[in-house]
Amino acid sequence: MVEPSGSEPLLIDALAAKAAAGGQAEHDALINGFLETVVVVPSGSDPAKGPLQPVLIDVDGVSHMLVCDSLVAVRVATDLAQYAVSMKGIDVVRGVAPGHALLVRTPTTGFAIDEALLNEIRSR
Rank of each mutant, 00 (worst) to 15 (best):
residue 106 T to K: 08
residue 5 S to M: 14
residue 58 D to K: 11
residue 105 R to M: 12
residue 72 V to P: 09
residue 22 G to W: 01
residue 16 A to D: 04
residue 113 I to Q: 01
residue 31 I to H: 07
residue 121 I to M: 01
residue 67 V to K: 03
residue 52 L to P: 06
residue 124 R to N: 13
residue 41 V to N: 06
residue 77 A to D: 07
residue 53 Q to N: 08
residue 111 F to V: 04
residue 46 D to T: 10
residue 115 E to G: 02
residue 56 L to K: 12
residue 28 D to R: 14
residue 64 H to Q: 04
residue 40 V to M: 11
residue 53 Q to M: 05
residue 12 I to P: 04
residue 86 S to T: 11
residue 55 V to R: 01
residue 57 I to T: 13
residue 12 I to M: 05
residue 46 D to W: 07
residue 107 P to R: 08
residue 93 V to C: 00
residue 97 A to M: 06
residue 93 V to P: 01
residue 52 L to K: 11
residue 33 G to Y: 08
residue 34 F to P: 09
residue 28 D to V: 10
residue 2 V to Y: 13
residue 14 A to F: 07
residue 123 S to E: 08
residue 3 E to A: 15
residue 11 L to Y: 02
residue 54 P to M: 04
residue 110 G to W: 07
residue 70 S to K: 01
residue 6 G to V: 02
residue 40 V to Q: 12
residue 115 E to F: 03
residue 39 V to F: 05
residue 88 K to W: 05
residue 25 A to K: 13
residue 30 L to M: 13
residue 25 A to R: 12
residue 73 A to N: 02
residue 3 E to Q: 14
residue 98 P to A: 08
residue 56 L to G: 12
residue 111 F to K: 06
residue 99 G to H: 03
residue 56 L to D: 09
residue 77 A to L: 09
residue 64 H to K: 02
residue 110 G to M: 09
residue 49 K to L: 07
residue 118 L to C: 02
residue 106 T to S: 11
residue 89 G to R: 05
residue 10 L to K: 06
residue 8 E to R: 12
residue 41 V to Q: 10
residue 49 K to M: 08
residue 23 G to D: 11
residue 12 I to N: 05
residue 116 A to L: 05
residue 12 I to T: 03
residue 35 L to D: 11
residue 101 A to P: 02
residue 20 A to V: 01
residue 99 G to P: 00
residue 1 M to E: 13
residue 110 G to K: 06
residue 61 G to I: 04
residue 52 L to G: 10
residue 93 V to M: 00
residue 76 V to K: 15
residue 79 D to L: 12
residue 78 T to F: 09
residue 29 A to Q: 09
residue 37 T to D: 12
residue 58 D to E: 11
residue 55 V to Y: 04
residue 21 A to G: 10
residue 122 R to I: 02
residue 110 G to N: 06
residue 68 C to W: 10
residue 18 K to F: 00
residue 99 G to E: 01
residue 65 M to K: 12
residue 59 V to M: 09
residue 115 E to Q: 09
residue 6 G to Y: 03
